[in-house]
């Protein structure tokens, strides 16, 4: 019985941890928005912006990935 509650808490916790991925998503969206606006205004900077955009996406995505890691740890390790 207690084991089941702990198991349920793990799942709930894992799900809650993934809420943090929202921030990562917003971050990715905003960085892409900025890059797209920049590209639309000045198409010459396409290559440069693309590289930096992908870097920025990777950084903001890392936040979401941390949430995912926490979620996995809750599910698999704890």
């Amino acid at each position: 019985m207690t084991g089941d509650i702990v198991q349920a808490a793990k799942f709930i916790g894992a799900g809650l941890a993934m809420i943090g991925a929202m921030g990562g998503g917003i971050g990715v969206g905003m960085s892409v928005q900025g890059a797209m606006e920049g590209m639309a205004r000045n198409p010459d900077t396409y290559g440069n912006l693309l590289t930096n955009m992908i870097l920025g996406i990777a950084f903001s995505e890392a936040i979401a990935i941390y949430c995912l890691v926490v979620s996995f740890l809750l599910l698999l390790v704890v």
């Binding site: 995505e61 890392a62 990935i65 941390y66 995912l68 890691v69 996995f72």
Partner: peptide, 16 residues
């Protein structure tokens, strides 16, 4: 920690 889990998280998520 950030370095560790960024790479691990991305790759492990991919594996899963």
């Amino acid at each position: 920690i950030s370095f560790t889990f960024r790479l691990f998280g991305n790759m492990f998520a991919g594996m899963v």
